[in-house]
Each structure stands twice: as structure tokens, then as C-alpha cells.
């Protein structure tokens, strides 16, 4: 498919709808995050819940990039998702947008590094890697990860990488494989 970089009304609506669907699905599993955090807090590992589920929160980015194959799609997918989430759950309010921007830039970076020439399994994995590194750096500042002992820090990073790879990488790949078999995307996004 030749990549066209213009965004049309239909693509914008499609991307927003997908973002909303993801928002709804996150929302359904929200209680899982709280339960997991509560369970891990007594041993001081509460933040690990965030890293275990990180892949779910950020998967809209790599998936959108891999699906739309356009400049800005990964960023927009993640950013629109965060706006939807903000108005849907409202739990974090406007600060959700910051996470949305950080995660969006993070997953877009993977596709940028290939110069937007490749939108394949390689660039998807690259996007997973940049997402993990950038969001982890952000948590080091914002959530005080930087002061943890080195062992824990490494463990959290590996957990986050696995989670992001599973949801943002493997699951995105499986979803797009299913979609490719329907041949619907080719005509739609041209």
C-alpha cells in the first residue's frame, strides 16, 4: 500500500472511534489496576502494577501507527485516546493529556526512526522499544522511579518492556493480521 500522508475526515473519525473503543476497554479493566496496585503495595511494589499493565495503556499508539501507516498516526491514536479517556473516566482529569502526549511522541518515535519508510514488524518493535524507554524516563521524573534501588529499577523496566511488547507489539500484529485478511483497510485508508 502506498502511504499517503493526508488525513481525511473519514480517517480522523475512524482513528477517534478506535481510540474510543480502546478507552472503553481500558475503562472496563480499570478495577484490575486498582486491585493489582493494592495487592502489591504492602511489599512496596505498588508501582509495578503500572508497569505490568503499561502495554494496555499505550497499545493504541503502536497499533495506530502500524494500521494507518502514516506520519503522525501513532501520536494521534494515543493522544486522541487520552482525550477520550479524560472525558470518559475523568479520574485523572486534564493531566491525562500530558501522559497522552508523552506516550504518543514515544510510540511515534519508533516509526520516525525508520524515516517513515517502514511500517512493518521491525518498526512496530522499534516503536515498542521507544515507547518503553520514553515512558519509563517520564516515570523516573514524575513518579519518583529515579530514586529506587537499581535492582528494582531494572526489574520494572523489563516488566514494562515485556508488557508493552505483548500488547503494543504482538497483539497489534495479531489484530492487524486479522484485519488484513478482510481486505477492508486497503480501500478505506487510501
Amino acid at each position: 500500500m502506498k502511504a499517503s500522508n493526508a488525513w481525511h475526515l473519514r480517517d480522523i473519525i475512524l482513528l477517534t472511534l478506535i481510540a474510543i473503543f480502546f478507552g472503553v476497554i481500558y475503562w472496563v479493566i480499570g478495577p484490575l489496576y486498582n486491585v493489582l496496585t493494592l495487592a502489591l503495595t504492602p511489599v512496596g511494589l505498588g508501582p509495578a502494577a503500572n508497569d505490568i499493565l503499561m502495554g494496555v495503556w499505550v497499545m493504541a499508539g503502536p497499533l495506530a501507527g502500524y494500521l494507518f501507516k502514516r506520519v503522525g498516526s501513532a501520536f494521534l491514536g494515543e493522544f486522541l485516546g487520552s482525550i477520550v479517556e479524560m472525558f470518559l473516566g475523568g479520574q485523572w482529569g486534564a493531566s491525562t493529556m500530558i501522559s497522552g502526549v508523552v506516550q504518543g511522541v514515544a510510540s511515534e518515535l519508533g516509526f520516525t526512526l525508520t524515516g517513515y519508510k517502514r511500517f512493518d514488524w521491525f518498526s512496530l518493535n522499534l516503536s515498542v522499544l521507544t515507547t518503553t524507554i520514553v515512558t519509563f524516563g517520564w516515570d523516573m521524573a514524575r513518579n519518583g522511579y529515579a530514586s529506587y534501588h537499581l535492582g528494582l529499577l531494572v526489574a520494572l523496566f523489563i516488566i514494562r518492556l515485556i508488557s508493552t511488547w505483548f500488547f503494543g507489539g504482538l497483539l497489534s500484529k495479531m489484530i492487524v493480521n486479522l484485519l488484513d485478511r478482510t481486505h477492508l483497510m486497503q480501500t478505506q485508508t487510501r
Partner: peptide, 27 residues
């Protein structure tokens, strides 16, 4: 489950047809 590709696949299929309809309606 939230880790099942089918769930997202079906959601995206629904989004595809809705976005088409909505874009045409707006146009």
C-alpha cells in the same frame, strides 16, 4: 478478554463501517 485480538478486531471492524457512514453523513 482484553488480551484477545478478536475483541479489538471486531471493534475496529465496527469502527470502519461507522466512520464510513458518519463521514458520508457529514459530507
Amino acid at each position: 478478554h482484553f488480551w484477545s485480538p478478536q475483541l479489538y478486531f471486531k471493534a475496529i471492524l465496527a469502527s470502519l463501517s461507522w466512520s464510513e457512514n458518519l463521514a458520508e453523513a457529514m459530507t
